[in-house]
């Protein structure tokens, strides 16, 4: 376990609302290895963004601990050292909201450079231009304002700002879901290039399984605040074990026959993700599940290790070990 850059141990995050306690993240344990792209998949309301925010330090976890290179970071960003703030960066979903409309691109990218002071004053401008080049934006964008840019270009600026501090872990919260597909491809390409060049680790939050198939090295799937299945990407898509994973895979609209063949055939999606205020007892997925057993409505299943690289949380697989 030497190469683990991020370790999440039994993290819980609850929110108290007038309707009751929302169990947004309910006991998640994961580990992310150095240099990989870890895909965290889930539908809306599954708690994947909350988990990302907990790792980023925006939320303080209700319970559990998070380690970054063996340093405890589970106390929120305020308690983090400058070094940690430099190392862990986040890219938000909507570049319209993550870029200040009243500041120009130069000022936006300059901020992290200035704060972390990794470059001397006279090199600052050079560094900003260099970052702009890295995300393949023309140099005359420096004095433009965000509203003059297209959605994809705005996201490029957000990426440039995130890598400005030379981080080692970048959390990507659905960075392309607000963009068109023709632009998504370019953003992903730049992200992958940057990863290779700067040895970055990505925690990639998304609802797009097909995208994860292409870029992630490992994938975890979340449902109602809990992780259902973690596996290597190829294994995950060839041999999905959890009924929820199968259901998700079977509902993706695809373009070709070959893809059609990969989808589990017999599963027809039913029902909707329930509100995280009143999570059903037992396995939270049981009343949408096609392979429901008696035990499912009574006891919450535990993580079962099928192989070294494949973990699933379902009663179906208890018998195997």
């Amino acid at each position: 376990m030497k190469d683990e850059i991020l370790t999440i141990k039994n993290v819980k995050k609850f929110f108290t609302t007038p309707q009751g306690v929302v169990r947004a993240v309910d006991g998640v344990s994961l580990s992310v290895k150095k240099g990989e792209t870890f895909g965290l998949i889930g539908e809306s309301g599954s708690g994947k963004s909350t988990l990302a925010y907990v790792v980023a330090g925006i939320y303080i976890p209700t319970q559990g601990s998070i380690y970054f290179n063996k340093q405890d970071i589970g106390k929120g960003y305020r308690k983090r050292s400058k070094y940690l703030k430099k190392e862990i960066r986040i890219i938000f979903q909507d570049p319209g909201s993550s870029l200040n409309p009243r500041r120009n691109i130069k000022q936006i990218i300059e901020l992290p450079v200035k704060v972390h002071n990794t470059f001397k004053n006279n090199h600052k401008n050079q560094r900003v231009e260099e970052l702009l080049e890295m995300v393949e934006l023309p140099i005359n964008y420096l004095y433009k304002y965000p509203q003059e840019l297209g959605g994809g270009e705005k996201q490029m600026v957000a990426i440039a700002r995130a890598i400005a501090t030379e981080p080692s872990l970048v959390i990507l919260d659905e960075p392309t879901s607000a963009l068109d597909v023709s632009i998504q491809a370019k953003i992903i390409k730049i992200l992958m290039d940057l990863q290779r060049r700067n040895n970055l680790t990505y925690l990639f939050i998304t609802h797009d399984l097909s995208l994860m198939r292409n870029i992630a090295s490992r994938v975890a799937i979340m449902y109602l605040g809990k992780v259902c299945e973690v596996a290597n990407t190829s294994e995950f898509f060839k041999k999905p074990l959890h009924p929820y994973t199968q259901m998700l895979l079977s509902s993706i609209p695809v373009l070709t026959k070959e893809e059609e063949l990969l989808k589990p055939q017999k599963i027809v999606p039913v029902g909707e993700i329930p509100s995280p205020v009143n999570v059903p007892p037992g396995c939270s997925f049981h009343f949408r599940c096609s392979k429901k057993m008696d035990i499912c409505s009574q006891k919450d299943p535990e993580m079962v290790e099928i192989s070294k690289t494949h973990i699933v949380r379902c009663h179906l697989y208890k018998k195997i070990d």
């Binding site: 960003y77 909201s97 870029l99 704060v115 700002r161």
Partner: peptide, 28 residues
Amino acid sequence: HEDFVTEAKLVGASKTHILFREILPNCM
């Protein structure tokens, strides 16, 4: 609650920067 303020906080920008450079121009 806007993401750009969260981002500035996370990167470690000073409070005066956040108040006068990020928030204030949007109130003008």
